[in-house]
């Protein structure tokens, strides 16, 4: 039976793993390749590397890092951050990335998603969506690492990218991210039930029960977290053991 996936996320800045709280206050958390290899050994199902400083000048650095990751890691990994063209993606895939994630650039030019799906297949196109619930109770799409609000509703944008060929959605709730108070169950469930592709829930995982909630009540196909793994608050084997005890199918 297909298992639920546990995915550590490594935010990369200048070649180091970092983690912020509510998208700010960045702290250093170590070498991404070492950390990624450790997680793979511990039983992580996939890894996500997001280059939060990606710019054109940094692209070469990123592709070198991806190449190093690919040489050392025996599970699938996704790379994101500043990807805006078919050529950007080709370089990353050639260096060993399995999937790429697009966010702001896809929102600015939605054809990018269609182009990537056509060129490389939907299986390697992850649409990352940062969303925040506003006072009106609606979830809106945010861009540029959460700094720019749009008037587009999360569910509408999610349908749009899936129609264009995105193979997975990586959904981050900005309200929950960094709080360790649990994932955003309602929006995760809404997307997971409405979309024909897997939804990876991100933002807010603090204790094992939060993962149980998002994978069961939230209907997520996978759960992503960063700092709780980086700072060893929860070990992956312990988390997956707990999920299995609660009757959730995981790879052990």
């Amino acid at each position: 039976m297909l298992t639920k996936r546990i995915i550590p996320c490594l935010d990369i800045k200048d070649g180091r793993t970092v983690k912020g709280v509510n998208f700010e206050n960045i702290r250093d958390a170590g070498d991404p390749v070492e950390l990624g290899a450790l997680y793979a050994r511990e039983g992580a199902d996939e890894l996500v590397f997001l280059d939060i400083t990606a710019t054109n000048e940094k692209r070469k650095t990123l592709s070198e890092l991806v190449n190093r990751i690919a040489h050392h890691i025996n599970i699938p990994f996704t790379v994101g951050g500043g990807i805006s063209s078919v050529d950007d993606v080709r370089v990353l895939l050639q260096n060993g990335a399995d999937k790429i994630s697009v966010n702001t650039s896809a929102f600015r030019r939605p054809e990018l998603v269609s182009e990537l799906a056509k060129e490389f297949g939907s299986q390697c196109v992850v649409a990352a969506i940062d969303t925040r619930m506003e006072a009106d109770g609606q979830w809106y799409v945010y861009l540029n690492g959460g700094r720019v609000k749009t008037e587009t509703k999360c569910i509408d944008w999610a349908h749009n990218v899936v129609d264009r060929g995105a193979g997975e959605i990586l959904l981050t709730s900005m309200n929950n991210d960094g709080t360790k108070k649990g994932f955003a169950l309602d929006i995760t469930r809404q997307l997971a039930e409405a979309l024909p592709v897997p939804v990876i829930a991100s933002g807010g995982g603090g204790i094992p029960d939060h993962f149980v909630e998002v994978l069961e009540a939230g209907k997520a196909d996978a759960a992503l977290a960063a700092s709780i793994f980086h700072f060893k608050e929860i070990a992956i084997p312990e988390l997956k053991g707990y999920l299995q005890e609660r009757g959730i199918a995981v790879r052990l």
């Binding site: 297909l2 997975e168 897997p198």
Partner: peptide, 15 residues
């Protein structure tokens, strides 16, 4: 077929 709400493609770890 995607019947029973299964997502297609299958993505992930299966035995």
């Amino acid at each position: 077929s995607g019947e029973g709400g299964l997502k297609v493609p299958q993505i992930g770890w299966n035995n």
